[in-house]
Simulated assay, not measured.
Amino acid sequence: MSESYLFHQQPEFWTLQWPDALKRVSHVTTCTIEIQHDETSLHAHVSLDDGTILGPGDKMIVQGPPIRLSFGESCTLHRGVKIIRATALERLWIKVASYFELFELYEVSFTPGKLP
């Protein structure tokens, strides 16, 4: 196989120009926050209003003051959010590191038969 064939089969990281691979891009959008704190559930869900999809390593900073709810309350808020995209190098590192994190979850036993 030729070298050019191998180069074109690599992930998108290799097709980027080096200055672009090191740039961090951010943008501001809006989000909807749903919070519930009662005897049946304790959760907070954030959904981006413009349908932006976050990738590995992306950061999301919700703007505004901290939200405090007493027990038994729930609320829905609309706030601004700043999305900071990971660089191509950060995405590559996270994808590689995630495989090693996954291996930590495997439990292998070589004992014969069933354990009591």
Results as ranks from 00 to 15, higher is better:
Gly64Ala: 14
Thr76Phe: 00
Arg68Gly: 10
Asp20Val: 02
Leu6Asn: 11
Cys31His: 04
Lys114Phe: 15
Tyr99Asp: 07
Trp18Asn: 06
Phe103Asp: 05
Gln17His: 09
Val62Gly: 02
Gly64Lys: 12
Ile83His: 03
His45Cys: 02
Ile94His: 13
Leu77Pro: 02
Thr15Ser: 15
Ile83Met: 03
Lys23Asn: 04
Gly51Pro: 00
Trp14Tyr: 15
His8Ile: 04
Ala97Val: 01
Ile83Trp: 03
Leu102Lys: 07
Glu39Ser: 15
Ser2Gln: 09
Arg24Cys: 11
Ala88Met: 11
Leu89Tyr: 13
Leu48Gly: 04
Tyr106Arg: 07
Leu22Ala: 13
Leu92Ala: 15
Ser74Val: 04
His45Leu: 10
Thr87Lys: 09
Pro65Lys: 13
Gln36Pro: 00
Pro65Cys: 03
Lys114Val: 11
Thr32His: 07
His78Asn: 14
Leu6Tyr: 13
Thr30Cys: 04
Leu22Asp: 08
Gln9Glu: 04
Cys31Ile: 02
Tyr106Thr: 03
Gly55Ser: 15
Glu12Gly: 13
Ile67Arg: 03
Lys95His: 08
Gln63Lys: 14
Thr40Arg: 11
Pro116Met: 02
Pro66Ala: 06
Ser74Glu: 12
Thr15Pro: 00
Leu42Ala: 12
Pro56Phe: 10
Val25Lys: 05
Asp49Ile: 03
Pro19Gly: 08
Ser41Thr: 03
Gln17Lys: 11
His8Pro: 00
Lys82Met: 10
Leu92Tyr: 15
Tyr106Ser: 07
Gly51Val: 02
Thr52Asp: 03
Ile67Lys: 01
Asp58Asn: 03
His43Leu: 13
Ser74Phe: 14
Gly113Gln: 10
Ile35Asp: 04
Ala97Cys: 01
Asp50Gly: 00
Pro116Phe: 02
Phe103Gly: 07
Glu90Arg: 14
Pro112Leu: 05
Glu12Trp: 09
Glu107Thr: 12
Leu6Phe: 15
Ala86Lys: 01
Trp93Met: 11
Ile84Met: 11
Ala97Leu: 07
His37Val: 09
Ser2Met: 05
Cys31Tyr: 03
Thr52His: 09
Ser41Trp: 02
Leu92Gly: 03
Pro19Lys: 07
His27Arg: 04
Met1Tyr: 08
Ile67Glu: 07
Ile84Tyr: 09
Thr29Trp: 01
Ser47Ile: 08
Leu105Phe: 07
Glu101Ala: 12
Lys82Gln: 12
Gln36Phe: 05
Pro56Met: 06
Glu104Val: 07
Ala21Thr: 12
Arg91Ser: 02
